[in-house]
């Protein structure tokens, strides 16, 4: 059943929406959740090597974006309250 894959794709597209809407906390949470599902699919649900390769590449992309959001949020928190 590829509902985990579908779930991962849904989460990733929601994350991108929140990201665009500048809801970075929400986007960060959703990117993490999406990668968790993608990772589960790569590890436990048989996929062709090509599919695994592209899922891992997606994970790397989302993780990179999530890290940037996390950095931004940390810095923003430190910024003196307006």
């Amino acid at each position: 059943t590829n509902n985990n894959l579908q779930k991962a794709i849904d989460l990733a597209s929601k994350a991108a929406q929140e990201d665009k809407a500048q809801n970075y906390e929400e986007a960060l949470r959703l990117y993490q959740a999406a990668v968790q599902y993608f990772l589960h699919v790569v590890k436990y649900e048989a996929q062709g090597d090509k599919a695994k390769h592209s899922i891992r590449a997606k994970c790397a992309e989302y993780l990179d974006r999530a890290e940037k959001l996390k950095e931004y949020l940390k810095k923003k928190e430190k910024a003196p309250p307006a």
């Binding site: 993490q32 968790q36 790569v42 891992r56 590449a57 993780l63 890290e67 996390k70």
Partner: peptide, 21 residues
């Protein structure tokens, strides 16, 4: 050079690093 794809373990590690606040 061929873009080296990230490994499952590396993904797992980064995910954990992210989650840790």
């Amino acid at each position: 050079a061929k873009k080296s794809t990230i490994s499952d373990d590396e993904i797992e590690r980064q995910l954990r690093a992210l989650g840790v606040d």
